[in-house]
Design a protein around this nucleic acid. Structure first.
Lengths: 153, 153
DNA sequence: CGTTAAATGACAATATACTGTCAAAAGAAC
DNA sequence: GTTCTTTTGACAGTATATTGTCATTTAACG
């Protein structure tokens, strides 16, 4: 059976497929950027969140779109490796605040330096203007997909 | 430490983040589209690949960018549910060809019909022209990321 | 042919992620 | 202040994905 998609629907379907494929490659690239420091994309994300501001595990989960449990698992690994520590939270007895250690800051800086080289090269290739326009559409799609509920079964 | 990114590098970094976020939402939407049929995005992908042309598990893995083991696991589930069957392969004794059963074709058609409604609505909202332009950049990024090796550790 | 290399499916082990549940702690309502 | 709801971290169970290994089969080479 053929699907009865409109031209715009066809265009969006092709767009979605290409976005999913690109995301896979970006994920791999992120892991590769983090790997020399012994980290992964997920650990890098948590490090960056904790560096931006000390926050609880649950806070980071919300900020990163991850489950609390997933962030907790990553954070425990980071603590074991001495990259973060759990600082007392004056506003909450149980919800300790994640904070980067010097070692954690160094690891994050090393990853970010490598990411800068990588992003600069790709930005040069693709062109700032085209990237900005595509980003605009991607964000519009993000908001539309969030709003648009899937047709009921 | 601040990263020393160029304006184009900044633009690409923001682009990458938005693409990753959109991909997460698209993945969820795909699961939601497939769920009423008792399927998932991964099972839908394998069904669609087998519908496009009878192929072995390893072929589907390559086509979908999945590991053969992952596809094998999904395919075994699909066979158990009667959506596909393993047909003899005249060119290879062990590598059976996946083929959709009538039940599998019906499930795929149901998912595709729901996907069409969803894609048409989003295509309408975002506009065919903008989607096409963004897709062009996404594909260019795809090729660039594939070529661009990550800076060595 | 005969030998070697590559591909394939099966299987196991591990890593990762998500869901659900629970008790402790904090906040809200009254 | 007391009660009820929400949040948070911990834990278990399950599902999924990846990696590695193995025997069998196919293809490539001479």
């Amino acid at each position: 059976m053929k699907s009865d998609r409109t031209p715009a629907g066809d265009a969006f379907a092709a767009f979605a497929i290409s976005v999913l494929r690109l995301a896979g490659h970006l994920q791999n690239a992120g892991d590769a950027l983090a790997k020399p420091t012994g980290q992964t994309s997920a650990r890098w994300q948590v490090l960056a969140a904790a560096d931006h501001a000390p926050m609880s595990v649950a806070d980071a989960g919300r900020a990163l779109g991850m489950t609390r449990q997933g962030v907790q698992r990553i954070a425990d690994l980071l603590e074991k490796d001495g990259l973060i520590l759990y600082a007392d939270n004056p506003a909450h007895q149980r919800a300790k605040l994640m904070a980067l250690t010097e070692s954690g800051k160094a690891a994050l800086a090393a990853i970010q330096a490598r990411q800068a080289v990588w992003a600069n090269a790709l930005g040069e290739i693709l062109g700032k203007k085209e990237i900005a326009e595509a980003t605009h559409t991607v964000i519009a799609a993000l908001q539309a997909v969030e709003k648009q509920s899937v047709p009921e079964g």
